[in-house]
Structure formats: structure tokens, C-alpha cells
Design a protein around this nucleic acid. Structure first.
Lengths: 238, 238
DNA sequence: TTTGCCTGGTGATCGAGGTCACTCGCGCGT
DNA sequence: ACGCGCGAGTGACCTCGATCACCAGGCAAA
């Protein structure tokens, strides 16, 4: 099955590669079938807005492929990115459950597919499937912990270099590699990194220069190489 | 019934003055009785720690009277206060539901009574009382929104004066009074205010001076008088 | 190719606010 | 009365990072 933007559509949750981690997919057969009926799927281009901060919640989006960023802005235009989402993430859950406006804007950074589940159908589905409701509660509290991590970063880690180091480490905790070096594909612009750690484009640029000079990292094309993990951890401290 | 610290113990949830707003109190009779059996109650002095960040969750605390502050700290000792709690609030809910360590420390600021519900009993109770489980989910998402408000304050409202103005306004949105002035009893030290808005004691002190000079506020003993609400709102902007 | 536009790098400047160092005043216990 | 400790007010200093202002390279559309 072919689709726009050169992507294949995943129209069957049973063969979906993100099936395992997914709170709405790895379900009992009847529940899964019910969910298949109420969901609709679509491919979104880069830059597409799944939903915008302040909108009334229409439903949740289940990101299958692609990447999205969640952000919130002030009226003067300052923006912070609060989370980067990948395949398997459920977006807009809190707003739907509490029936309050979306607290963030969700924008596609890389084209990808997302399933949409309308609010009413979802709530009905949850009432009928207690098992899934429990997963939703767990997901909500995971979201809450993520939010608190953000609060700690913004409120306690004072200097940009500290936050930058923290971010770099968060990108490489997953592979937990070898000697002390690790590689990451760098897909964010300096501007976006600045919005994550709450500083300016220029400062991020200077931080890269600094850290390169101090042998903490290295750039091979768009691949970021962490050279000295322990030194980064010492910068983070807090 | 008399108790330490000159406080009366509320031993009956049915006559509790915070009964209405309380997610665990305003229940059906059988559920309320069940809850009464699994809860224990105690009076805590000022400075008492209900629980500490990082501890495994033992259970939730239902604050009946008194005030508590929730805070999180970095290793170097920097602290931010994330929430001030009053009668009716449920503390530690997220940690209990998700079985992760308490994400904050809860410390009594004014002596008061709290009911304790052990984790196991609560989870069992929730399984048997779906209605209450729903309220818990709603409470979780309320907590989440509060956390996001905090993220916005820390990440978007850049200057201390902006955050300070925001805080002052948050203290007086409730009475929504008369002409444009409002009164609040000031119970926090400058140090604590600094920990709420993420700055230093000295800066808070200077902000009070500044705002007094600009006729925005006034101090009568420990009573804070907001003199010019609109001007504060203009400072907040964002 | 040319023309933009977006991203990135870097210097210069400047001001807000953190830090340090006092002092003052009040309440409290002995 | 005395000393003590805590909260508060304020001046002096100095650092860090935001801001402004350029410029260079890469990439895409015309």
C-alpha cells in the first residue's frame, strides 16, 4: 500500500512494528478489533499540526511512524519544546481525559502516520474495557513524571551548559555503549535545541563550539559523537 | 476531642468542613465507610515531613486542615516549591498510582491534620469502587495541568518580576474583588517566595520594594494589599 | 547561474540578576 | 536584660547570557 510522502501506510495494528510498546495496540483480540473500528489513520507531512495548544480536545493521536514535537508558547512568541515524540507515543491523552484544551501544540518534525481516535469513541471504549483504562491511568502518571522532570530541568538546572549537557546525555542513555563514547543522529536545528533547553540559538551554537573545544563531543556530518560521558555528567551534577 | 498543637481532631468525614471539595470524602455511604476503615489520622506539627522526594510511596495523605508545601531539590541544595496545598488536597497520589518514588517532598507549613491511606488498601479500594477510580484519574490529569502551568511559568516567563507579578495575581484571583484592590494574608517568607518563582531571597526583597514604590502593592503588617491589578497583569503579559 | 532563504558561527555590547557582605529589627528563651 | 537567630532591606560588584549585527555555506526554486 503506497501513500503520499513516500511512506507506506500501516493499516493493520497486528503487524505494526511499534505494537509492543503501544498502550492501545497490545490488546486482547476483541478490544483490538473494536479499537480498529473507531480509529482512522492518516499520513502527515513535515510541519503538519496534529493539534494546537488551546484547542478543545477532538481526540487522541497515536503516532505510528515519524517524529513530532510538543511545544507551548507565550503570547510574545517565545516557545519551549516540552517533548519529542516517536512511534508508539499517544498524543493528546490528558486533554481528552480531562476534557480541557490541549496544553501543547503537536507538530510533525518528520512525515509519518498517525491514528486518530475521536474523544467520544475513546471514552466509550475505555468504559467498556477496564484493562485499557488502567493503562491510560498509568500513561497519565508517566506523563506527569515527564512533566516533573521538565520542571526540575527548568527550575533547578540553572545554566544553559548544564541543561545542554543534560540533553546530550538524555540522547545517549538508551544505547549505553562501550567505552564512554556514543553516537546519535542529530536531527534538530540549533533553534530547536534552544527551545528545548530554554535559551537562544546563539548560545546553543556557542555551546557546541565550547564542548567541541573541550573534547566533550564531536561532529561527523550530522552525527553527534559523545566523547566524554563522565565529564558531561560532572557538568550536570544536580 | 482535643489534640496536640491546640487543634481539634476531625474524626468523622461526614462532618468534615472540606467534605465537599474532597475527592475521597463526598462518596456514597458504603464507600465512605470502607474508606473510614482503611484510613488513619494524625496531627502534624509545623515542619513535619509527610513524605520525602525519592522515597518509595507508602500511601496517600489527605490534608484536612493546615497547609503544606510541595518541593523538589537538586543535590546542591537548590529548592523549588511547586505547590502549596490546603485542606482537601490529596498528596502523593501520583507516586502511589504509578508506584514510583514520590517526586516531591511534602512539608507542613502550618500544623494540621492529615489522613493516611496505605497504598495497598487504596489500590484495593479503587478496584472495588470504579466511581472513585474515575475521580482519581481526573485528579491525576488536574495535577498534570498544574505541572504544565509550572512549566510555562518557569520556561516562558523569563524575568523574576514577571513571575512575581504572576504569583501575586494567583493569590487574588479567588476573591475577585471590588475596585481593583484585594487583600491577602501573607504567610510566606521571602525565601519561600523565592523558591516558588525560582530566584533569590534578595531579589524578592527588591521586588517588594520596587512594587511598593510603583504603587502596585502595599503592606499593612502581614497583610498584602494589591493596589493596581491591571498594572500587574500588564507586567505578566505572557 | 542567480537569487533567496534558512541554518549556523561569532564578535561586541550591555544589563539584569546572582552573589557577597553588611546592618537592622523582632521574637524568644534563659 | 541580654544574647541569639532568623527574616528582611540594601549597597557593591561582576558574571553570564540575551541581544544585535554580520557573514558564510547549503539548498531549492526560478
Amino acid at each position: 500500500m503506497r501513500a503520499p510522502y513516500g511512506l507506506n501506510i500501516l493499516d493493520n495494528c497486528l503487524t505494526c512494528p511499534v505494537r509492543e510498546e503501544h498502550i492501545f495496540c497490545n490488546l486482547s483480540v476483541p478490544a483490538g478489533q473494536h479499537l480498529n473500528e473507531i480509529k482512522s489513520t492518516a499520513i502527515y507531512p513535515k510541519g503538519a499540526m496534529l493539534f494546537i495548544e488551546g484547542q478543545q480536545p477532538r481526540g487522541v493521536f497515536v503516532l505510528c511512524t515519524g517524529k513530532a514535537k510538543l511545544s507551548t508558547s507565550s503570547r510574545e512568541g517565545k516557545t519551549i519544546i516540552t517533548k519529542l515524540s516517536e512511534g508508539g507515543d499517544v498524543l493528546g491523552l490528558n486533554a481528552v481525559i480531562s476534557n480541557r484544551p490541549y496544553e501543547v501544540t503537536a507538530e510533525m518534525m518528520e512525515p509519518g502516520q498517525a491514528n486518530f481516535i475521536p474523544r467520544d469513541s475513546l471514552l466509550q471504549f475505555l468504559k467498556e474495557n477496564g484493562e485499557v483504562a488502567v493503562r491510560v491511568a498509568e500513561q497519565l502518571s508517566r506523563n506527569y513524571y515527564t512533566a516533573y522532570e521538565e520542571i526540575r530541568t527548568l527550575g533547578l538546572a540553572t545554566s544553559p551548559s548544564e541543561k545542554f549537557a543534560k540533553l546530550l546525555l538524555s540522547w545517549t542513555t538508551k544505547p549505553a555503549q562501550t567505552d564512554g563514547s556514543a553516537q546519535v543522529k542529530l536531527t534538530l536545528t540549533h533553534e530547536e535545541i534552544a527551545e528545548i533547553i530554554g535559551t537562544t540559538r546563539e548560545t546553543v551554537s556557542r555551546l557546541f563550539s565550547d564542548f567541541k573545544k573541550k573534547q566533550l563531543l564531536q561532529l561527523k556530518g550530522s552525527t553527534l559523537v559523545i566523547r566524554n560521558r563522565v565529564a558531561l555528567e560532572k557538568i550536570v551534577q544536580s
